[in-house]
Write a protein that binds this DNA or RNA. Structure first.
Length: 571
RNA sequence: CGGGGUGUAGCGCAGCCUGGUAGCGCAACUGCUUUGGGAGCAGUGGGUCGGGAGUUCGAAUCUCUCCACCCCGACCA
């Protein structure tokens, strides 16, 4: 590709609305452009990268025996009514009516459609196992789209669906996908982790997420520093501590704590440490009432675990301050478990405290030296906190370390949820109709592109991993438009690269070298070759890898062999 | 949906308080010079000032209203 004929649309200034690096760089490099909240076009440069991602996914899915098909975005409401999700899905499902007033939606996912295909196409156990996949546009009407294509409303996803006769066979299909995902993420060249996860709204049991590691990741994931344990932090059990609760050593007192509303205020105001204080959160109950959730001051509530408790609204919703004031008579910041008068769950770590500090359920008052079993009843204990760095690993091996990740893939065992509700069956060996077991497997294709940038960039721009780079090599002639010598050398080399099937970008624009270098670095081409009059007359060319600190001058007669070597030795 | 904010040239912004010829930088276009790290000079084009209504002799500016977008929160892949 010649840059003069490619739509290189780089921006010098950072668009003010872009919050995170990947979004800023994708706009600056001219990969994407926004039309509305969460709605983007992919310009030619961005599409090249998207296609690389898709191609790797496609090759590995095919290798794993999955079959590509393509399903519609526009989906009739009947199928969603059959599965029950027409009512279950919230406003995230974009619903519309066609000219005949028939209800429909723009697909946020495709379980209904694939199950409809399956029940019409497949009749016999002999046709199983089966795995269909597509790479297609999804639409989810997010409450708040943000971070560019990281959380957009319209996005591209690879979704695959497996069908098996029984649970064991489903497990085998799932394992095959697990392996395929490992190959896919290895080939992307990204630093990633597979972790066990919650299956969320899609349903099903066993599930695993694939996260690209990045500081800016929205998810926290934890690993054992000794064993193989790895999981999304929201699913991890915080193990009970060994040993007994210490005996009380003083009588409870009530003290004035004016203006101390946060745990930090309280700890510094009373001269105690945060872990000696109780944090009491109020959630909405399943029956419309309120439930108290008590944690140690230095711990965070795990909303997923708390939402599973008996009597707590699921998904978890924290109560509004007015609601709390009305029911409990005091403001957030002075609430505590003693005499609270609503159902109360106490986290394991909080239940082990003695002589703790807690709100007195009167504004600006707290208890000190409070103790379970003496100043109030023994607590109802539950595991409701998020694990923290250094907690013991739930598999009993080592301690947990916590990293941040961007979820780019998720594989689930769905079981019979959809096949059952939509009455998809096949005949088994005995001629009996059986309900097949399904799995579903997603990769956020557009999100992979953004995640790759989050993980690989510097102050000059994007640094593409080899497999995703829009071009393998940038040819940067200096004064291409002025110097016959330079133009000749650049053209010859470019033609040779094209003939060898390399994907190269020749920057033949009549620009100053600084502009060319900056653009090539911004768009993240992994390596560049520079031709100049000075170098050519000395029989040299210049080479620099995108991550190299400095360029090197090399003999011209080694040009082809050198490039071949760097292309094949790269990782 | 709740809270906060912003809409002026492709991008980044000033002007608004105190009503009176719509400006600056970058980008684009033309010419000359320059040419190994986002050049210089000269010139040119580009605006429903988010939309509508109102007040006024006169509205980017004041008032009302609608819309869009951004940030924080709950939600989610």
């Amino acid at each position: 590709m010649r840059a003069s004929r490619f739509h290189l649309a780089t921006l010098k200034e950072t668009p003010v609305d872009a919050e995170i690096v990947s979004h800023q760089l994708m706009l600056r490099a001219g990969m994407i452009r926004r039309h509305a909240a969460g709605i983007y076009s992919w310009l030619p440069l961005g599409l090249r990268i998207l296609r690389k991602v898709e191609q790797i996914v496609r090759e590995e899915m095919n290798r794993a025996g999955a079959l590509e098909l393509l399903m519609p975005s526009f989906q009739p409401a009947e199928l969603w009514q059959e599965s029950g999700r027409w009512d279950q899905f919230g406003p995230e499902l974009l619903r519309l009516k066609d000219r005949h007033q028939r209800d429909a939606c723009i697909g946020p996912t495709h379980e209904e459609i694939i199950t409809d295909i399956f029940r019409r196409e497949v009749n016999s156990y002999r046709q199983l196992p089966l795995n269909f996949y597509q790479i297609q546009t999804k639409f989810r009407d997010e409450i708040r789209p943000r971070f560019g294509v990281m959380r957009s409303r319209e996005f591209i996803m690879k979704d695959a669906y497996s069908f098996d006769l029984d649970r064991d066979a489903m497990q085998r299909s799932y394992d095959i996908m697990d392996q395929a995902y490992v190959r896919i993420f290895d080939r992307f060249g990204l630093d990633y982790r597979a972790v066990s996860a919650d299956s969320g709204a899609i349903g099903g049991s066993t599930s695993q997420e694939f996260h690209v590691l990045a500081e800016s990741g929205e998810d926290a994931i934890a690993f054992s520093d000794q064993g193989d344990f790895a999981a999304n932090i929201e699913t991890i059990e915080a193990l009970p501590q060994d040993g007994e609760r210490a005996a009380p050593d003083a009588a409870m007192q009530t003290v004035d704590t004016p203006g101390m509303h946060s745990i930090a205020d309280l700890a510094s105001g009373l001269g105690v440490s945060a872990h000696q204080c109780l944090k009491t959160l109020i959630a909405e109950g399943a029956d419309g009432g309120l439930v108290a959730l008590v944690l140690r001051g230095d711990h965070e509530l795990n909303a997923l675990k708390a939402g599973h408790l008996d009597g707590v609204a699921s998904p978890l919703r924290l109560a509004q301050p007015e609601q709390i004031k009305k029911r409990l008579g005091s403001d957030i910041g002075s609430i505590g478990p003693i005499g609270i008068g609503i159902r109360t769950y106490v986290d394991r770590s909080a239940a082990r405290l003695s002589d703790f500090v807690c709100g007195a359920n009167q504004n600006d008052k707290h208890h000190i030296h409070a103790n379970w079993g003496r100043d109030c009843a023994e607590p109802e204990v539950a595991d409701i906190r998020s694990v923290v760095d250094g907690d013991p690993s739930p598999d009993g091996r080592g301690r947990l370390r916590i990293l941040r990740g961007i979820e780019v893939g998720h594989i689930f065992q769905l079981g019979q949820k959809y096949s059952e509700s939509m009455q998809a069956t096949v005949l088994d060996e005995q001629g009996k109709a059986v309900v097949p077991f399904m799995g579903c497997y997603g990769i956020g294709v557009t999100r992979v592109v953004a995640a790759a940038i989050e993980q690989n960039h510097d102050e000059h721009g994007i640094i593409w991993p080899e497999a995703l780079a829009p071009f393998q090599l940038a040819i940067c002639p200096i004064n291409y438009h002025k110097s016959d010598l330079v133009r000749q050398a650049a053209d010859d080399f470019y033609d040779g690269c094209i003939a060898r099937g390399l994907d190269v970008l020749l920057d033949d624009r009549p620009l100053r070298p600084g502009v060319i270098f900056s653009d090539m670095e911004l768009i993240g081409v992994p390596r560049r070759v520079v031709f100049s009059e000075r170098g050519l007359s000395a029989g040299q060319f210049e080479y620099k890898g995108r991550r190299d600190a400095a360029a090197q001058d090399l003999p011209l007669d080694e040009l082809t062999s050198f490039i071949e070597k760097t292309l094949s030795s790269r990782q």
